[in-house]
Simulated assay, not measured.
Amino acid sequence: MTTDSLRFTRISTHASGAIPAVGFGTLIPDPLVTGQATKAALEAGFRHLDCAERYRNEEAVGDAVQEAFKAGTLQRRDLFVTTKLWNTNHRPDRVKPAFDASRRRLQVDDIDCYIIHTPFAFQPGDEQDPRDERGRVVYDRGVTLAETWGAMERLVDEGHCKSIGLSDITLEKLREIVAVARIRPAMVQVESHPYLPEWELVDFCREHGIVLQAFAALGHAMKPNLLADPVITSIAERLNKTPAQIALAWAVQRGTAFLTTSTNPRRIQENFDISTLPEDAMREMRDKITTNIRFNSVVETGVPGFIPRVG
């Protein structure tokens, strides 16, 4: 029996070779649980880990990765590590120190892709979520995204950063960066799922050798529930797969990468075990799913909607 290779898909970029399409996101509030989930993800077969300074758990991810290295079950060259520059570090002089701090916490020499977490600059400083007395975000008007991008490009020049990218970005803003970039983004990470397919952005990325990576690929169990969609559930039933496996296979087959996060080892394994959908199922998903919804307003505010407040 031949194993379906969809889960091992790698997508070529103009920059750092190929990016594993199937990614594990580490947006997990508890560092101890983060470590266990990362370990389970590596054991399941995930070879792309998505991290961020903002998640405050890079050390836990680094520990899990080091454990796999020491056990001999994983080699650094087989793993693609992405992490992100937080909004308070957009000023060019803050970019390299933030990058080096992430490398140190993750315990790796090189980062495969370093991403600007959102296109919004917040007031620089140690407070990750700066607010004024009325509770509104304090933005930093003294820096442009293009200036931050220039500092990201210099990281690539210096050698420990293999490629750079953007997250939570609109097509319009992405066009602006691509127009001025000396080093183009290798990857952009945006909310995308069958209820928000972002076809125009997918086409633009393909044209420019940029990988589009979908976060919230399963809609984060928010209402309306993507995994209860009748088109998806009927395909899942027909193919003897779960609705989640259908939505994730759809993401890879249309040429995008995805991120999925879970702390449940059985669900982590299920999210990795995707296989190729027949053409008629892909067509059905394109033609018959009519719901269109964005679950996360971060593209308008720079404030991620899924990060639990740590009180």
Rank of each mutant, 00 (worst) to 15 (best):
Q123Y: 00
I116W: 06
I111V: 15
E127I: 09
C113E: 07
V108T: 11
A98P: 12
I111E: 06
P92Q: 14
D129I: 07
P130S: 05
L106F: 07
L106S: 02
E127D: 08
A101C: 15
D100C: 12
Q128D: 08
R91I: 13
D109F: 01
Q123N: 00
V108G: 06
P97R: 01
D126N: 04
D109A: 11
F120M: 00
V95H: 06
R104E: 14
C113S: 15
G125L: 09
V108K: 02
V95I: 13
D100L: 14
Q123T: 00
F120V: 00
H117F: 10
F99C: 09
T118D: 04
I116V: 12
R103L: 14
R91K: 15
H117N: 13
F99V: 01
Y114H: 03
K96V: 12
Q123A: 00
I116G: 08
A121T: 07
K96D: 13
S102H: 07
F99Y: 08
I111C: 12
D112W: 02
D126Y: 01
Q123P: 00
D129M: 06
Q107D: 05
D129S: 10
Y114C: 01
P92A: 15
D110W: 06
D112P: 05
D112M: 04
D126R: 08
F99S: 06
F120L: 00
L106D: 03
D112Y: 03
F99H: 07
P124E: 08
L106N: 03
F99D: 04
R105Y: 05
P97D: 01
C113H: 11
P119Q: 14
T118V: 00
D126M: 01
K96I: 07
D112L: 04
F120A: 00
E127V: 08
R94K: 15
A121C: 07
D126V: 01
K96R: 15
D109H: 09
D126E: 05
R94L: 15
A98L: 14
G125W: 12
P130H: 08
P119D: 06
F99W: 06
D112S: 09
P97S: 04
